[in-house]
């Protein structure tokens, strides 16, 4: 995670009400907050609103932030909660509130068993492939998507991801694993078709 030590100094300045510290916090963390919101919501304008809400809420509540998690982790938590509220409003039946899933049990058996790893690099770097990768993230269930985005795309550690989402480290690990398996399963038909076209 980016410069935790300098975040501690920044936090002290934020607590003193230093406005230049607010600007520094934005410069440091707004790109990541925006990306997480965008990948959760799939909509640029909504992601921008969530980013604004995140920093507004964070600066208002800075005295209540105990600092057990890092500043970035706390900002991701606020952004996730704000994005989740929007998702629930938009699709209440698709976003479960509870945590009853037995994440460690019953992993789906992979059905896509074609080896597409040997495709030419240009196929992996095309705009079509990048769009397919983004679509596959968007098609993940929210609980898996947010873990994958934080852990794999934003580079948070497993512990930071768990802290941001207020879940256990084991739950974060299992959700990441399930997300990866689902993405592989989802992307394999696309790459298999490319491989068969190349052959």
């Amino acid at each position: 995670m980016l410069s935790e030590d300098s975040d501690r100094v920044l936090l002290e300045r934020l607590r003193r009400g230093d406005k230049s510290a607010c600007a520094e916090c934005i410069e440091r963390h707004s790109p990541g907050v925006y990306r997480v919101a965008l990948r959760l919501l799939g909509h640029e304008a909504e992601a921008e609103e969530v980013m604004q809400e995140t920093f507004l809420s964070a600066f208002k509540a800075i005295d209540k932030f105990e600092g057990r998690a890092g500043l970035a982790t706390w900002l991701y938590r606020i952004a996730h909660n704000a994005a989740l509220m929007r998702l629930r409003r938009a699709q209440p039946e698709q976003v479960s509130v509870d945590d009853e899933e037995a994440f460690g049990e019953g992993l789906p058996v992979p059905t896509q068993l074609h080896d597409w790893c040997c495709l030419p690099e240009r196929d992996f770097e095309s705009s079509e492939t990048r769009a397919a990768l983004e679509r596959a993230i968007h098609d993940l269930p929210e609980k898996l998507r947010v873990v994958f985005v934080m852990r794999e795309l934003e580079g948070l550690s497993t512990e930071e991801t768990a802290q941001a989402l207020e879940i256990s480290i084991d739950a974060a690990k299992v959700r990441l694993h399930r997300a990866r398996l689902q993405l592989r399963e989802h992307l394999s038909p696309y790459f298999t078709e490319l491989a068969q076209t190349e052959a």
């Binding site: 896509q112 080896d115 597409w116 790893c117 992996f124 492939t129 990048r130 990768l133 983004e134 994958f148 794999e152 795309l153 990866r180 398996l181 993405l183 592989r184 992307l187 394999s188 790459f191």
Partner: peptide
């Protein structure tokens, strides 16, 4: 293919 999937996302 799982390893490749992870790599592709790291390079996205």
């Amino acid at each position: 293919t799982l390893r490749k999937t992870i790599t592709l996302y790291h390079e996205l």
